[in-house]
Amino acid sequence: MGLLHDVRTGRFERTLSALTAAGAAITAGEIYMEHDAASFGNKMMWWPVVVIPTAIPAGIAAVSSRRAAKTVLPFVSAAIVANGVQGTYLHLRGVKQRPGGWTRYNLEGGPPVFAPLLASLVGGMGLLAAVLRREDEPNPSQVR
Rank of each mutant, 00 (worst) to 15 (best):
M1P: 13
L3T: 11
H5W: 05
H5E: 13
T9N: 15
F12M: 15
L16K: 07
L19V: 13
A21P: 11
A22L: 15
G23H: 13
A25M: 11
G29K: 11
D36L: 10
N42Y: 10
K43A: 13
M44V: 10
M45L: 04
W46I: 05
W47E: 03
V49F: 09
V50E: 01
V51P: 00
I52R: 01
P53Q: 03
A55S: 14
P57Y: 06
I60W: 09
A61S: 14
V63N: 01
A69Y: 03
L73K: 06
F75G: 09
V76T: 11
A79E: 09
A82T: 14
N83S: 11
N83V: 02
G84H: 04
V85R: 02
T88G: 07
L90V: 03
L92R: 11
L92N: 07
L92W: 14
R93F: 08
R93V: 01
P99A: 07
P99Y: 04
G101A: 05
Y105F: 06
N106F: 06
E108L: 14
P111R: 12
P112C: 02
P112W: 07
P112H: 08
F114E: 01
P116L: 11
L118W: 10
L128S: 05
A129E: 11
A129C: 10
A130L: 10
L132T: 06
R134Y: 07
V143F: 09
